[in-house]
Structures are given as C-alpha cells and as structure tokens.
Design a protein around this nucleic acid. Sequence first.
DNA 1: GTCCAGGATGGGC
DNA 2: GCCCATCATGGA
Length: 328
Amino acid sequence: MAGCRPTDALVLFTEGGCLSAANVKNDNGHGTEVRIKTPGDFRLSETLGYLWRSPTEILYRVNDGEIVRYIPLSRRKIWVKVSAGDSDALVVRLPADVRRVDIEEVKRFLREWFDLSRDLAPFYRLAESDEVLAPLLAQFYGLRLVRVPDLFEALCWAVMGQQINLEFAYTLKRQFVQAYGQGSMFEGQTHWMFPDPSRIARLQIPDLRRLQLTQRKSEYIIGIAQAMDSGQLSKAQLLTLEDGEARQQLRQIRGVGDWTANYVAMRCLGHMSAFPAGDVGLQNAVRQVRGMARKPTPAELLELGRQWGDWKAYATFYLWRSLRGTSP
DNA sequence: GTCCAGGATGGGC
DNA sequence: GCCCATCATGGA
C-alpha cells in the first residue's frame, strides 16, 4: 500500500495497485464510481445479451447497457450499477457512502459473476478448430460464463429448472424471491436479493407449494436450506475438494442428480470440466449446430465433450447461448 | 388434446 | 447395474 496517497476518506486499490484519482468520483448525486479492468477478449455486450434472456428475471435489471442489482456483502447490502468503460474496463457505480472494504468485496463479486479472472485464450484456440464451437465463437466472441456466486441460489435455481421450460422456471424463482427474499427500494423500483438459507430452512412444505413448486422440489429446497443453515453444506468446503469429489458430494444431497451437480459445479464452483451431458438444452443446441435430424444421446455428447477437455463448461455455455440468438 | 421442457427418485428386475 | 412410472405445470 506504500505509495498510495489517501485522497479523502476513500482510498481505493485494485490488484494492479492503487487507483488514480481520475478513477474515483465521489459526488453525492451519482455515488462512487470505480473501474474494474477486464481482459482484452471480454465484451460486456455479449454478457448483457445473456443476462437479458428473460423478462421475468428478478435478481437484476438490464436497462440501456447498464446492469443494476443489489449485492449482499458481508457488512451490508448495496446497489451497484455496471456498464462498459471506455477501454478494457467496467464502470461500477456504488452508493456515495460505500467503504473500501465494501468496494473490494463488490469487485470480487463482479469478477466472479462475469468470470473475469480466467484466461480464455486456450478455450478460444480450442474452439477455432472445433466444428461445433467455431461458428459459436464467431457469433459470441467475448462472452464469458456468467456465474452464480451464491451456492444456495445456484442449487435452488437448478432444482427449480428441473424438467420444466425455462420461462416457467423464471416464474418460480420470481415468486420464491418475492415471497422470501429481501427487497430494497432504489430509484423508484424494488430490487430483490435471493433468500437466505436460514429463512427457508424454517419453512414448511406447503409454504413453497403455494408458490407453484411441486411437492418434491419443495422438499429438496428446504432440505438444501437446512443443510446449508446447519453448516453441513457450504461453498467454502466444496471449494476445498477436487472437482470430482465436490460433484460426488453434491450428488449426496436429495434432489441433486448428475445434471444438477454438474450445473452447480460449472455455474457456482467454476469447474471448467463440468459437463451436464444429459441436458436437454445442450442436446438441442448440438443438434442444431451440427444439423442433426435427431438429438444426440448423452453418450454421444460425452464422446463429443472429450475433445473439449477441461473446457466443457465453456463449450456448454456457448451452446446454451446459441439457443437464444444474438439479440437481447 | 398431445407433447415437451436446462431431471430426480424409488421401485422392480 | 438398467428401465420405468411418477411428479406436476406451462407453453407450443
């Protein structure tokens, strides 16, 4: 920290050192502004295209190239606005009274959310010469695997999405979040955060059945909440395990099969070799890209996945993205 | 009305 | 181990 001169109450650092005063604005009208350096091959526009896939999404809003959401930090919850900077940077706007520790936590959250710490060059080299991935690379270059940093959210979202169409899954999530999450008013609109496991752990099955969740899904979600609330299940603990062991442990949870374990591994734990080979969306995407008459079987997908090595999760994410076209 | 959707479980064999 | 009925709702 030597060499960083405190300007006022606020002192900001990035992994590259301290930020120049030009990168910090702390006017009361628009809050605090910080920048996050992004890799040269990152394009926020592609991420926005992914984030904007459902009008029913409840955990963030996308307007006019800007993402707005509340983020739960360890000390407090705060709103953030994320937009594209001039060059290789994200512009992040925060409340005026935000403190340095909060800013560092926000930056960690956003780097994880958009998977900014990963070197994608090997994936792009692989994709260039891959008959399935090459056309997707041309279409979605700059897209990163959008993560779900909150383990409870990732597990619930996966369970909710089991065997139903995606739009209905968004409806289930919205109803769940609005019933048991925390809402905050900001600029005339309510922003929602995902419920805490501690709250869901105390619910009864009928509480969730009222939200159109099935009996089974209600049982699964409350069970997951109780496991997390008791400390028996945690992201920190899963991250200490080898990839395969973590997925094995996830599968011990009632309601978590092979698909869900792999889904959570790739979206939450950041396992790049995770591969939900039984996924219907993945099957449809491969069928479409290869012009097949029928959907590939999970066995055929596993065979295909072999050539993607440790980049199966990225291949999957790009294939999912291809199901929804290029426009928001 | 039928079929499918970003599956998992518990039963039977 | 594999196969199958069941769950349970919405959209095409």
